[in-house]
Design a protein around this nucleic acid. Sequence first.
DNA 1: CTGAAAGCGCTTACAG
DNA 2: CTGAAAGCGCTTACAG
Lengths: 339, 339
Amino acid sequence: MNLPRRRSTGRITLSDVAAAAGVSPITASRALRGERGVAQELRERVQAAVQRLGYVPDPAARALASQHGSHVGVLIPMLSNALFVDLIEALQRVLRAAGYQPLIGLTHYDKSEEEHLLREQLMHRPAGLVVTGFDHSAGTRALMAQGAVPCVHVMETSDQPGVWSVGFSQREAAAALTRHLLARGHRRIAFVAAQLDPRTLQRLDGWRDEMQRHGLADPRLEWSNPAPSSLALGAQMLAQVMAQQPRVDAIFFCNDDLAQGALLAALRTGIRVPQDVAIAGFNDLPGSDQMVPALTTVRTPRERIGEAAAQMLLTLMRHGTPAQAAVDLGFEVVVRESA
Amino acid sequence: MNLPRRRSTGRITLSDVAAAAGVSPITASRALRGERGVAQELRERVQAAVQRLGYVPDPAARALASQHGSHVGVLIPMLSNALFVDLIEALQRVLRAAGYQPLIGLTHYDKSEEEHLLREQLMHRPAGLVVTGFDHSAGTRALMAQGAVPCVHVMETSDQPGVWSVGFSQREAAAALTRHLLARGHRRIAFVAAQLDPRTLQRLDGWRDEMQRHGLADPRLEWSNPAPSSLALGAQMLAQVMAQQPRVDAIFFCNDDLAQGALLAALRTGIRVPQDVAIAGFNDLPGSDQMVPALTTVRTPRERIGEAAAQMLLTLMRHGTPAQAAVDLGFEVVVRESA
DNA sequence: CTGAAAGCGCTTACAG
DNA sequence: CTGAAAGCGCTTACAG
């Protein structure tokens, strides 16, 4: 007599909940999303029905109807830098607790790869976006602007209007570490960089600021290698720098893995640290405190950056306004034995 | 006169493409998904229209209509073990190229957390699942069974019917490394474990097999600590083991980070490796080749596991049947200086 | 504060 | 090999 239901999935739907609660689907929807302006009593009836029926909302239907999904795109360079692992863990924890799924995209420090990933992310209509730093391709910037998706930048801060960020001053952190080296009496302090990503370049600036201020600047003290950062590369670059005349008395490696590799190479080749040369790193990655000698470095607050960025994004996604546009979480120079 | 369009999004839809190509939306849909049985000519007209209009399919609509999304859930213990970073990179690369988005869930080696994550993943109707190992809660197993979502297990293999897996024999790998230690003349070989996850336990079995076979088994040689693996823990456990009488002549650490920490602690405390005690690890993580002395370990094929698992899952998601149910990718004992 | 109707953009049976 | 109709499970304006 009546038409057969087609493609029925047997799923408990919002309508089932509404019927059980004796309200319209629309009111059930509003109650579920915690929208203001639903009578307390109806709200409770809906909650009870949800419990009773074991209702689970369908994210796909929600995304289609509301024009945005429940995931947030997270664009980071790579996971093999422990820094980003800590960041992701923290982001994941708070985003997840609020019902959002992080979708991780790995840019490999490549701007066009980043643009490609963003385009891919955007077609999934993310509710929000977390991106690393501010150095993006024109295409990426255009996509972010037109998308109108809430976005927070991490690792660096910016005072540009309309830009949300959580990070610290890479430049100041590098300057602070350089001042520590200077205070220890070092004069010929080399800066050794790999990867040459924007944050490495900012650290280079911070080092250069201090060296110039002390009249110690010398381009021969700047070393770099475009290869990705690794222990092996650190070992290789230590050898290069030490072969130079006149010798440097301290080396500031732009990342801890490089410094760890250098420390191990020093051990292997009989270079005494810090007597023959002092060595410092950046980020305080796992293992740096275990090195022989223990590595002097800068502790960067990536866990707190992850948390704060997630909180800020949550506020934005709920159409709120974060208290501050740029949150600077600082850093800490960790003095150990190597410098 | 005519009704105003409501909530129009201005998006180019499949209907627009179909109209431009002069076919029905349904045919356009079929052509787009590469479904068999669409005339070559229509297929081309649709493709041309897609290009011309810059059409991008809406994953949410697709997911709602087809009852499954375009992402695949990936459940791993954690990212701070470099092993899983390599696995994820590989999985990500091939899954992404095929149009799937990996959704990473971190279980922290906790079965109930895994179950919780899986429940969360499943409500998003993933197209497929990648899970680590076979040691799951009853709830997790039930969810995987009822979900009917294609699933491949990684890191271990199983010959159970209906189970798909890509990995290697953790037990045999540990046995092979133990045989190497034995061949070097070591007799009192300790096994030191952290974390005690299932794969660590399998390695313990492999070591025990060999020790028993040579009549060298001794429960006092088994050490473990439930804390997560780290360099600092390796240092601590080396001290514990070395304080024991009679002394061991070799230590097999269940993971490289533990062994790396032990190597550094030995350096700090004047223990000579391998003369006073030989040290071996497992996994060949970054930095192990740079240690002083360089760490002897087992190289595990996580990149190839990631690729093969992704390929297998792709086959499954396309309703195909993989050539093998269990793919064993082997391992390699890497003999360096420490043992 | 609440609801009836329409629609989000696809795909699934059912026909032919 | 191709298509008209219905439906996936939600939310958004529009009314009242």
